[in-house]
Design a protein around this nucleic acid. Structure first.
Ligand SMILES: Nc1ncnc2c1ncn2[C@H]1C[C@H](O)[C@@H](COP(=O)(O)OP(=O)(O)OP(=O)(O)O)O1
Ligand SMILES: [Mg+2]
Length: 441
DNA sequence: TGTGACGCAAC
RNA sequence: GUUGUUGCGUCACA
Protein backbone atom coordinates (compact mmCIF):
# COMPACT_ATOMS: atom_id res chain seq x y z
CA UNK A 1 0.00 0.00 0.00
CA UNK A 2 0.97 3.64 0.09
CA UNK A 3 1.89 3.36 3.74
CA UNK A 4 5.57 3.75 2.97
CA UNK A 5 6.92 7.25 2.91
CA UNK A 6 8.47 8.94 -0.09
CA UNK A 7 12.24 8.49 0.10
CA UNK A 8 15.01 10.89 -0.73
CA UNK A 9 15.81 11.19 -4.42
CA UNK A 10 19.34 12.42 -4.93
CA UNK A 11 21.78 12.57 -7.81
CA UNK A 12 24.10 10.24 -5.91
CA UNK A 13 21.37 7.64 -5.70
CA UNK A 14 20.69 7.90 -9.42
CA UNK A 15 24.39 7.59 -10.21
CA UNK A 16 25.02 4.72 -7.81
CA UNK A 17 26.90 1.89 -9.46
CA UNK A 18 24.17 -0.71 -9.06
CA UNK A 19 21.52 1.62 -10.43
CA UNK A 20 23.64 2.52 -13.45
CA UNK A 21 24.34 -1.14 -14.22
CA UNK A 22 20.65 -1.93 -14.06
CA UNK A 23 19.90 1.01 -16.34
CA UNK A 24 22.59 -0.09 -18.77
CA UNK A 25 21.12 -3.57 -18.96
CA UNK A 26 17.65 -2.28 -19.69
CA UNK A 27 18.78 -0.03 -22.52
CA UNK A 28 20.74 -2.92 -24.02
CA UNK A 29 17.89 -5.36 -23.63
CA UNK A 30 15.49 -3.04 -25.45
CA UNK A 31 17.67 -3.12 -28.55
CA UNK A 32 16.14 0.14 -29.67
CA UNK A 33 17.53 2.03 -32.64
CA UNK A 34 20.03 4.85 -32.47
CA UNK A 35 19.51 8.52 -31.74
CA UNK A 36 20.94 11.52 -33.58
CA UNK A 37 24.54 10.60 -32.77
CA UNK A 38 24.21 7.21 -34.46
CA UNK A 39 25.43 5.19 -31.48
CA UNK A 40 23.79 1.76 -31.28
CA UNK A 41 22.69 0.09 -28.05
CA UNK A 42 25.32 -2.59 -28.67
CA UNK A 43 28.04 0.06 -28.45
CA UNK A 44 26.84 1.63 -25.22
CA UNK A 45 28.59 -0.70 -22.79
CA UNK A 46 31.96 -0.31 -24.45
CA UNK A 47 31.55 3.46 -24.53
CA UNK A 48 30.60 3.61 -20.88
CA UNK A 49 33.48 1.34 -19.83
CA UNK A 50 36.05 3.33 -21.78
CA UNK A 51 35.01 6.61 -20.16
CA UNK A 52 34.24 5.34 -16.66
CA UNK A 53 33.77 8.56 -14.75
CA UNK A 54 33.31 11.04 -17.55
CA UNK A 55 29.57 10.78 -17.85
CA UNK A 56 28.84 10.74 -14.16
CA UNK A 57 31.23 13.62 -13.60
CA UNK A 58 29.51 15.74 -16.23
CA UNK A 59 26.19 15.04 -14.60
CA UNK A 60 27.48 15.80 -11.11
CA UNK A 61 29.00 19.07 -12.28
CA UNK A 62 25.88 20.06 -14.11
CA UNK A 63 27.65 20.31 -17.44
CA UNK A 64 25.88 17.35 -19.00
CA UNK A 65 23.79 18.35 -21.98
CA UNK A 66 21.27 15.97 -23.51
CA UNK A 67 21.46 15.51 -27.27
CA UNK A 68 18.57 16.48 -29.53
CA UNK A 69 15.72 14.04 -29.99
CA UNK A 70 15.33 12.25 -33.31
CA UNK A 71 11.84 12.66 -34.75
CA UNK A 72 10.22 9.59 -36.33
CA UNK A 73 6.58 9.19 -37.29
CA UNK A 74 4.72 5.91 -36.89
CA UNK A 75 1.11 5.18 -37.85
CA UNK A 76 -1.50 4.96 -35.11
CA UNK A 77 -4.42 2.54 -35.21
CA UNK A 78 -6.80 5.33 -36.23
CA UNK A 79 -4.70 6.27 -39.24
CA UNK A 80 -3.13 9.34 -37.68
CA UNK A 81 0.59 9.67 -37.19
CA UNK A 82 2.39 9.39 -33.87
CA UNK A 83 5.46 11.60 -33.47
CA UNK A 84 8.15 9.72 -31.60
CA UNK A 85 11.05 11.44 -29.95
CA UNK A 86 14.04 9.13 -29.85
CA UNK A 87 16.85 10.15 -27.50
CA UNK A 88 20.42 8.95 -28.06
CA UNK A 89 21.34 5.70 -26.33
CA UNK A 90 23.47 7.65 -23.87
CA UNK A 91 20.52 9.84 -22.97
CA UNK A 92 18.28 6.81 -22.72
CA UNK A 93 20.84 5.31 -20.36
CA UNK A 94 20.85 8.37 -18.10
CA UNK A 95 17.07 8.63 -18.24
CA UNK A 96 16.79 4.95 -17.27
CA UNK A 97 18.86 5.61 -14.20
CA UNK A 98 16.56 8.49 -13.28
CA UNK A 99 13.37 6.59 -14.09
CA UNK A 100 14.30 3.59 -11.93
CA UNK A 101 14.60 5.82 -8.88
CA UNK A 102 11.60 8.02 -9.69
CA UNK A 103 9.38 5.01 -10.22
CA UNK A 104 10.52 3.32 -7.05
CA UNK A 105 9.58 6.32 -4.94
CA UNK A 106 6.44 7.48 -6.72
CA UNK A 107 5.03 3.96 -6.52
CA UNK A 108 4.63 4.62 -2.83
CA UNK A 109 2.24 7.51 -3.34
CA UNK A 110 0.39 6.70 -6.58
CA UNK A 111 -3.24 5.79 -6.00
CA UNK A 112 -4.79 2.37 -6.35
CA UNK A 113 -7.00 3.12 -9.35
CA UNK A 114 -4.03 4.10 -11.54
CA UNK A 115 -2.76 1.22 -13.67
CA UNK A 116 -0.82 2.50 -16.68
CA UNK A 117 2.98 2.38 -16.88
CA UNK A 118 3.21 0.99 -13.34
CA UNK A 119 5.08 -2.09 -12.12
CA UNK A 120 3.05 -5.10 -10.98
CA UNK A 121 -0.08 -3.75 -12.62
CA UNK A 122 -1.69 -4.79 -15.85
CA UNK A 123 -4.71 -4.19 -18.03
CA UNK A 124 -6.60 -7.16 -16.69
CA UNK A 125 -6.49 -5.73 -13.19
CA UNK A 126 -7.73 -2.41 -14.54
CA UNK A 127 -10.62 -4.10 -16.33
CA UNK A 128 -11.42 -6.19 -13.27
CA UNK A 129 -11.62 -3.00 -11.23
CA UNK A 130 -13.90 -1.47 -13.83
CA UNK A 131 -16.13 -4.55 -13.72
CA UNK A 132 -16.44 -4.27 -9.96
CA UNK A 133 -17.82 -0.78 -10.28
CA UNK A 134 -20.23 -1.82 -12.99
CA UNK A 135 -21.50 -4.72 -10.91
CA UNK A 136 -22.10 -2.42 -8.00
CA UNK A 137 -24.61 -0.60 -10.15
CA UNK A 138 -22.49 2.15 -11.66
CA UNK A 139 -23.57 1.62 -15.22
CA UNK A 140 -22.94 5.04 -16.70
CA UNK A 141 -19.41 5.67 -17.76
CA UNK A 142 -17.42 8.81 -18.46
CA UNK A 143 -14.72 7.90 -20.94
CA UNK A 144 -12.01 10.52 -20.92
CA UNK A 145 -9.16 10.81 -23.39
CA UNK A 146 -6.58 13.56 -23.51
CA UNK A 147 -5.48 15.20 -26.71
CA UNK A 148 -1.83 14.41 -27.60
CA UNK A 149 -1.23 13.67 -23.95
CA UNK A 150 2.56 13.38 -23.71
CA UNK A 151 3.09 16.21 -26.15
CA UNK A 152 1.02 18.65 -24.11
CA UNK A 153 2.52 18.14 -20.66
CA UNK A 154 3.43 21.52 -19.26
CA UNK A 155 7.09 21.65 -18.23
CA UNK A 156 6.75 24.27 -15.52
CA UNK A 157 3.84 22.49 -13.91
CA UNK A 158 5.58 19.12 -14.04
CA UNK A 159 8.77 20.56 -12.57
CA UNK A 160 6.70 22.22 -9.87
CA UNK A 161 5.10 18.89 -8.98
CA UNK A 162 8.45 17.08 -8.98
CA UNK A 163 9.91 19.77 -6.73
CA UNK A 164 7.26 19.06 -4.13
CA UNK A 165 8.78 15.61 -3.57
CA UNK A 166 12.37 15.90 -4.79
CA UNK A 167 14.52 18.20 -2.72
CA UNK A 168 17.74 17.73 -4.70
CA UNK A 169 17.72 20.64 -7.14
CA UNK A 170 20.32 18.95 -9.35
CA UNK A 171 17.89 16.13 -10.10
CA UNK A 172 15.14 18.57 -11.02
CA UNK A 173 17.55 20.50 -13.21
CA UNK A 174 18.67 17.32 -14.99
CA UNK A 175 15.10 16.25 -15.69
CA UNK A 176 14.31 19.76 -16.89
CA UNK A 177 17.21 19.57 -19.33
CA UNK A 178 15.89 16.33 -20.78
CA UNK A 179 12.46 17.86 -21.22
CA UNK A 180 13.91 20.85 -23.06
CA UNK A 181 15.99 18.77 -25.49
CA UNK A 182 15.36 20.11 -29.01
CA UNK A 183 13.86 18.06 -31.82
CA UNK A 184 15.91 17.00 -34.80
CA UNK A 185 13.90 16.40 -37.95
CA UNK A 186 15.45 15.68 -41.35
CA UNK A 187 18.84 16.72 -40.08
CA UNK A 188 17.62 20.08 -38.83
CA UNK A 189 17.83 20.80 -35.12
CA UNK A 190 15.01 22.92 -33.77
CA UNK A 191 14.79 25.21 -30.80
CA UNK A 192 14.68 24.06 -27.19
CA UNK A 193 11.41 22.26 -26.51
CA UNK A 194 8.94 24.13 -24.32
CA UNK A 195 6.05 21.70 -24.24
CA UNK A 196 5.58 17.98 -23.68
CA UNK A 197 7.48 14.84 -22.73
CA UNK A 198 8.82 13.03 -25.80
CA UNK A 199 6.98 9.85 -26.79
CA UNK A 200 9.99 7.59 -26.56
CA UNK A 201 11.63 9.23 -23.59
CA UNK A 202 12.36 6.82 -20.76
CA UNK A 203 11.17 9.16 -18.03
CA UNK A 204 8.09 10.28 -19.96
CA UNK A 205 5.69 7.60 -18.67
CA UNK A 206 6.47 8.22 -15.02
CA UNK A 207 6.32 11.98 -15.59
CA UNK A 208 2.92 11.55 -17.20
CA UNK A 209 1.74 9.67 -14.13
CA UNK A 210 3.12 12.34 -11.85
CA UNK A 211 0.92 14.92 -13.60
CA UNK A 212 -2.23 12.82 -13.68
CA UNK A 213 -1.64 11.77 -10.09
CA UNK A 214 -3.14 15.15 -9.23
CA UNK A 215 -6.34 14.12 -10.98
CA UNK A 216 -6.24 10.74 -9.22
CA UNK A 217 -6.07 12.46 -5.86
CA UNK A 218 -9.02 14.69 -6.76
CA UNK A 219 -11.09 11.75 -7.95
CA UNK A 220 -10.37 9.79 -4.80
CA UNK A 221 -11.19 12.82 -2.68
CA UNK A 222 -14.59 13.05 -4.31
CA UNK A 223 -15.18 9.33 -3.96
CA UNK A 224 -15.45 8.75 -7.68
CA UNK A 225 -15.41 5.22 -9.09
CA UNK A 226 -12.42 5.72 -11.34
CA UNK A 227 -9.98 3.57 -13.23
CA UNK A 228 -7.10 5.13 -15.15
CA UNK A 229 -4.58 3.76 -17.63
CA UNK A 230 -2.27 6.49 -18.91
CA UNK A 231 -4.56 9.13 -20.41
CA UNK A 232 -7.45 6.73 -20.79
CA UNK A 233 -9.66 7.21 -17.76
CA UNK A 234 -13.06 5.71 -17.12
CA UNK A 235 -15.27 6.97 -14.32
CA UNK A 236 -18.38 5.08 -13.37
CA UNK A 237 -21.58 6.75 -12.17
CA UNK A 238 -25.09 5.71 -11.20
CA UNK A 239 -26.89 8.00 -13.61
CA UNK A 240 -26.32 10.08 -16.69
CA UNK A 241 -27.02 13.19 -14.62
CA UNK A 242 -24.32 12.31 -12.12
CA UNK A 243 -21.90 11.60 -14.94
CA UNK A 244 -22.59 14.95 -16.58
CA UNK A 245 -22.07 16.77 -13.30
CA UNK A 246 -18.78 14.98 -12.73
CA UNK A 247 -17.46 15.48 -16.24
CA UNK A 248 -18.03 19.20 -15.94
CA UNK A 249 -15.66 19.73 -13.04
CA UNK A 250 -13.20 17.07 -14.22
CA UNK A 251 -12.82 18.80 -17.57
CA UNK A 252 -12.31 22.11 -15.87
CA UNK A 253 -9.78 20.62 -13.48
CA UNK A 254 -7.76 18.93 -16.23
CA UNK A 255 -7.62 22.01 -18.43
CA UNK A 256 -7.16 24.80 -15.93
CA UNK A 257 -5.26 23.07 -13.13
CA UNK A 258 -3.25 20.42 -15.00
CA UNK A 259 -2.79 22.45 -18.21
CA UNK A 260 -3.82 19.52 -20.38
CA UNK A 261 -6.38 19.31 -23.17
CA UNK A 262 -9.41 17.05 -23.01
CA UNK A 263 -10.11 15.37 -26.34
CA UNK A 264 -13.67 16.61 -26.99
CA UNK A 265 -14.38 14.02 -29.68
CA UNK A 266 -13.16 10.96 -27.82
CA UNK A 267 -14.50 12.02 -24.42
CA UNK A 268 -18.05 10.87 -23.87
CA UNK A 269 -20.74 9.71 -21.47
CA UNK A 270 -22.35 6.39 -22.35
CA UNK A 271 -24.13 3.42 -20.87
CA UNK A 272 -21.46 0.77 -20.23
CA UNK A 273 -22.99 -1.71 -22.64
CA UNK A 274 -22.48 0.62 -25.59
CA UNK A 275 -20.12 -0.65 -28.29
CA UNK A 276 -18.59 2.83 -28.31
CA UNK A 277 -17.11 2.21 -24.91
CA UNK A 278 -13.61 0.86 -25.35
CA UNK A 279 -11.26 0.44 -22.43
CA UNK A 280 -7.86 -1.20 -23.00
CA UNK A 281 -9.21 -3.15 -25.95
CA UNK A 282 -12.27 -4.41 -24.11
CA UNK A 283 -15.91 -3.42 -24.23
CA UNK A 284 -18.67 -4.48 -21.87
CA UNK A 285 -21.60 -6.55 -22.96
CA UNK A 286 -24.62 -8.37 -21.63
CA UNK A 287 -24.76 -10.57 -24.70
CA UNK A 288 -22.83 -13.67 -23.75
CA UNK A 289 -23.24 -17.38 -24.28
CA UNK A 290 -25.80 -19.31 -22.24
CA UNK A 291 -23.00 -21.32 -20.67
CA UNK A 292 -21.38 -18.19 -19.33
CA UNK A 293 -24.68 -16.87 -18.01
CA UNK A 294 -25.27 -20.17 -16.25
CA UNK A 295 -21.84 -20.04 -14.73
CA UNK A 296 -22.21 -16.49 -13.47
CA UNK A 297 -25.93 -15.90 -12.99
CA UNK A 298 -25.29 -13.07 -10.56
CA UNK A 299 -23.59 -10.94 -13.21
CA UNK A 300 -25.04 -8.92 -16.03
CA UNK A 301 -22.10 -7.34 -17.79
CA UNK A 302 -18.98 -9.15 -19.00
CA UNK A 303 -15.83 -7.84 -20.64
CA UNK A 304 -15.47 -8.79 -24.29
CA UNK A 305 -12.91 -8.11 -27.02
CA UNK A 306 -13.83 -4.83 -28.65
CA UNK A 307 -14.94 -5.17 -32.27
CA UNK A 308 -12.10 -2.94 -33.45
CA UNK A 309 -9.56 -5.25 -31.89
CA UNK A 310 -11.14 -8.31 -33.53
CA UNK A 311 -10.87 -6.56 -36.87
CA UNK A 312 -7.30 -5.60 -36.13
CA UNK A 313 -6.30 -9.20 -35.46
CA UNK A 314 -8.05 -10.45 -38.58
CA UNK A 315 -6.36 -7.79 -40.68
CA UNK A 316 -2.91 -8.76 -39.42
CA UNK A 317 -3.68 -12.43 -40.13
CA UNK A 318 -4.81 -11.51 -43.63
CA UNK A 319 -1.38 -10.05 -44.29
CA UNK A 320 0.40 -12.99 -42.68
CA UNK A 321 -1.58 -15.58 -44.63
CA UNK A 322 -1.56 -13.69 -47.89
CA UNK A 323 -1.20 -15.96 -50.91
CA UNK A 324 1.85 -14.01 -52.00
CA UNK A 325 3.24 -14.08 -48.47
CA UNK A 326 6.94 -13.75 -47.98
CA UNK A 327 8.97 -16.55 -46.51
CA UNK A 328 8.40 -20.28 -46.31
CA UNK A 329 5.38 -22.18 -45.05
CA UNK A 330 7.17 -23.15 -41.87
CA UNK A 331 7.89 -19.55 -40.98
CA UNK A 332 4.25 -18.62 -41.50
CA UNK A 333 3.15 -21.52 -39.34
CA UNK A 334 5.42 -20.39 -36.53
CA UNK A 335 4.38 -16.76 -36.78
CA UNK A 336 0.72 -17.70 -36.76
CA UNK A 337 1.15 -19.79 -33.63
CA UNK A 338 3.15 -17.10 -31.86
CA UNK A 339 0.66 -14.39 -32.74
CA UNK A 340 -2.42 -16.34 -31.72
CA UNK A 341 -0.80 -17.49 -28.49
CA UNK A 342 0.16 -13.98 -27.48
CA UNK A 343 -3.17 -12.51 -28.49
CA UNK A 344 -5.18 -15.22 -26.76
CA UNK A 345 -3.13 -14.79 -23.67
CA UNK A 346 -4.09 -11.15 -23.43
CA UNK A 347 -7.80 -11.45 -24.10
CA UNK A 348 -8.30 -14.96 -22.74
CA UNK A 349 -11.81 -15.36 -21.33
CA UNK A 350 -13.14 -12.25 -23.07
CA UNK A 351 -13.20 -13.90 -26.49
CA UNK A 352 -16.69 -15.08 -27.54
CA UNK A 353 -16.58 -18.72 -28.61
CA UNK A 354 -18.83 -18.18 -31.61
CA UNK A 355 -16.40 -15.61 -32.98
CA UNK A 356 -13.51 -18.00 -32.31
CA UNK A 357 -15.18 -20.58 -34.53
CA UNK A 358 -15.81 -18.04 -37.27
CA UNK A 359 -12.24 -16.83 -37.19
CA UNK A 360 -10.77 -20.33 -37.12
CA UNK A 361 -12.65 -21.48 -40.17
CA UNK A 362 -11.64 -18.25 -41.89
CA UNK A 363 -8.01 -18.98 -41.00
CA UNK A 364 -8.27 -22.52 -42.35
CA UNK A 365 -9.76 -21.31 -45.61
CA UNK A 366 -6.83 -18.99 -46.07
CA UNK A 367 -4.36 -21.71 -45.18
CA UNK A 368 -5.90 -24.00 -47.81
CA UNK A 369 -5.55 -21.25 -50.39
CA UNK A 370 -1.99 -20.72 -49.36
CA UNK A 371 -1.04 -24.39 -49.73
CA UNK A 372 -2.90 -24.79 -53.00
CA UNK A 373 -0.99 -21.85 -54.40
CA UNK A 374 2.23 -23.16 -52.94
CA UNK A 375 1.97 -26.52 -54.70
CA UNK A 376 1.38 -24.71 -57.98
CA UNK A 377 1.80 -27.44 -60.57
CA UNK A 378 -1.03 -29.95 -60.98
CA UNK A 379 1.32 -32.86 -60.50
CA UNK A 380 2.41 -31.41 -57.21
CA UNK A 381 -1.14 -30.85 -56.13
CA UNK A 382 -1.98 -34.43 -56.92
CA UNK A 383 0.99 -35.72 -55.00
CA UNK A 384 0.41 -33.52 -51.95
CA UNK A 385 -3.27 -34.23 -51.81
CA UNK A 386 -2.79 -37.95 -52.20
CA UNK A 387 -0.19 -37.90 -49.52
CA UNK A 388 -2.77 -36.63 -47.10
CA UNK A 389 -5.76 -38.50 -48.30
CA UNK A 390 -5.04 -41.97 -49.54
CA UNK A 391 -8.54 -43.10 -50.20
CA UNK A 392 -9.44 -40.08 -52.26
CA UNK A 393 -11.81 -40.44 -55.17
CA UNK A 394 -11.42 -37.93 -57.96
CA UNK A 395 -8.25 -36.48 -56.58
CA UNK A 396 -6.55 -36.80 -59.90
CA UNK A 397 -9.23 -34.98 -61.78
CA UNK A 398 -9.48 -32.31 -59.12
CA UNK A 399 -5.80 -31.59 -58.97
CA UNK A 400 -5.83 -30.55 -62.61
CA UNK A 401 -8.73 -28.13 -62.30
CA UNK A 402 -8.71 -24.35 -62.47
CA UNK A 403 -6.86 -21.86 -60.34
CA UNK A 404 -9.64 -19.87 -58.77
CA UNK A 405 -8.45 -20.24 -55.19
CA UNK A 406 -11.35 -19.02 -53.14
CA UNK A 407 -13.84 -21.13 -54.99
CA UNK A 408 -11.63 -24.16 -55.00
CA UNK A 409 -10.96 -24.32 -51.32
CA UNK A 410 -14.63 -24.80 -50.61
CA UNK A 411 -14.72 -27.93 -52.75
CA UNK A 412 -14.90 -31.31 -51.16
CA UNK A 413 -11.54 -32.87 -52.08
CA UNK A 414 -9.58 -30.03 -50.53
CA UNK A 415 -11.81 -29.87 -47.51
CA UNK A 416 -11.30 -33.55 -46.91
CA UNK A 417 -7.67 -33.86 -47.95
CA UNK A 418 -6.89 -30.76 -45.99
CA UNK A 419 -9.48 -31.28 -43.30
CA UNK A 420 -9.33 -29.46 -40.00
CA UNK A 421 -7.69 -32.46 -38.42
CA UNK A 422 -5.08 -32.75 -41.13
CA UNK A 423 -4.25 -29.08 -40.86
CA UNK A 424 -3.92 -29.34 -37.12
CA UNK A 425 -1.74 -32.42 -37.30
CA UNK A 426 0.55 -30.58 -39.67
CA UNK A 427 1.04 -27.90 -37.04
CA UNK A 428 -1.40 -25.23 -38.17
CA UNK A 429 -2.50 -23.37 -35.09
CA UNK A 430 -6.01 -22.19 -34.29
CA UNK A 431 -7.35 -19.51 -31.97
CA UNK A 432 -9.34 -22.17 -30.18
CA UNK A 433 -6.19 -24.10 -29.38
CA UNK A 434 -4.42 -20.91 -28.37
CA UNK A 435 -7.24 -20.05 -25.98
CA UNK A 436 -7.26 -23.55 -24.52
CA UNK A 437 -3.56 -23.42 -23.72
CA UNK A 438 -3.88 -19.84 -22.48
CA UNK A 439 -6.53 -20.71 -19.94
CA UNK A 440 -4.46 -23.61 -18.66
CA UNK A 441 -6.54 -26.64 -19.71
C1' DT B 1 15.79 -19.72 -8.67
C1' DG B 2 17.85 -16.68 -11.82
C1' DT B 3 19.43 -14.98 -16.71
C1' DG B 4 18.49 -13.65 -21.84
C1' DA B 5 16.27 -14.29 -26.72
C1' DC B 6 11.86 -13.89 -29.14
C1' DG B 7 6.70 -12.47 -29.15
C1' DC B 8 1.67 -10.59 -27.77
C1' DA B 9 -1.18 -6.73 -25.50
C1' DA B 10 -2.21 -1.77 -23.41
C1' DC B 11 -0.94 3.30 -23.69
C1' G C 1 12.25 2.43 -41.40
C1' U C 2 9.65 1.98 -34.84
C1' U C 3 11.10 4.92 -29.37
C1' G C 4 9.48 4.35 -24.48
C1' U C 5 6.96 2.35 -20.00
C1' U C 6 4.26 -1.75 -18.08
C1' G C 7 2.15 -6.62 -17.96
C1' C C 8 2.02 -11.37 -19.74
C1' G C 9 3.47 -15.67 -22.83
C1' U C 10 6.90 -19.10 -25.37
C1' C C 11 11.60 -20.96 -25.85
C1' A C 12 16.59 -21.37 -24.30
C1' C C 13 20.81 -21.55 -20.87
C1' A C 14 23.05 -22.17 -16.00
N1 LIG D 1 4.00 3.42 -29.18
C1 LIG D 1 4.15 4.36 -28.23
N2 LIG D 1 5.37 4.79 -27.91
C2 LIG D 1 5.55 5.72 -26.96
N3 LIG D 1 4.57 6.30 -26.27
C3 LIG D 1 3.32 5.91 -26.55
C4 LIG D 1 3.03 4.94 -27.54
N4 LIG D 1 1.70 4.77 -27.59
C5 LIG D 1 1.17 5.61 -26.70
N5 LIG D 1 2.14 6.32 -26.05
C6 LIG D 1 1.94 7.33 -25.00
C7 LIG D 1 2.11 8.71 -25.56
C8 LIG D 1 0.71 9.23 -25.75
O1 LIG D 1 0.64 10.63 -25.64
C9 LIG D 1 -0.04 8.54 -24.64
C10 LIG D 1 -1.52 8.34 -24.92
O2 LIG D 1 -1.72 7.61 -26.10
P1 LIG D 1 -2.85 7.97 -27.17
O3 LIG D 1 -4.07 8.45 -26.47
O4 LIG D 1 -2.98 6.78 -28.06
O5 LIG D 1 -2.21 9.14 -28.05
P2 LIG D 1 -2.22 10.71 -27.81
O6 LIG D 1 -2.90 11.09 -26.53
O7 LIG D 1 -0.80 11.18 -27.92
O8 LIG D 1 -3.00 11.27 -29.07
P3 LIG D 1 -4.58 11.45 -29.26
O9 LIG D 1 -4.81 12.92 -29.36
O10 LIG D 1 -4.88 10.73 -30.55
O11 LIG D 1 -5.27 10.80 -28.10
O12 LIG D 1 0.62 7.26 -24.48
MG1 LIG E 1 -4.93 10.47 -25.94
Amino acid sequence: MSSETFGEITLERILARGNLMQALKKVEANKGSCGVDGMETSELRAYFKSNPGKLTEQILQGTFKPSPIRRVYIPKDNGEQRPLGIPTVIDRFVQQAIALVLSEEYEKIFVDHSYGFRPNRDCRQAVRRAMEHIREGYEWVIDIDLRKFFDTVNHDFLVQLLSRRIRDGRVISLIHKFLRAPISEEGKVGKANRLGCPQGGVISPVCANVVLHELDIKLREKNMRACRYADDAVIFCKSRKAAERALKWIKKFIESKLHLRVNEDKTKILKVGSPDVQFLGFSFTTKVSKAKKMKFPQYRYFPTVHVKKRKKLKESLRILLDRRARGGIDRIKRKLRLKLRGWANYFKKAVPISWVQDLDSWIRRRVRQLLWKQWKKPANRYRELKLRWNKAPNVEKFAYSSNRYWHIVTCRPLQTGLSNNVLESEGWYSLEKALRTASGT
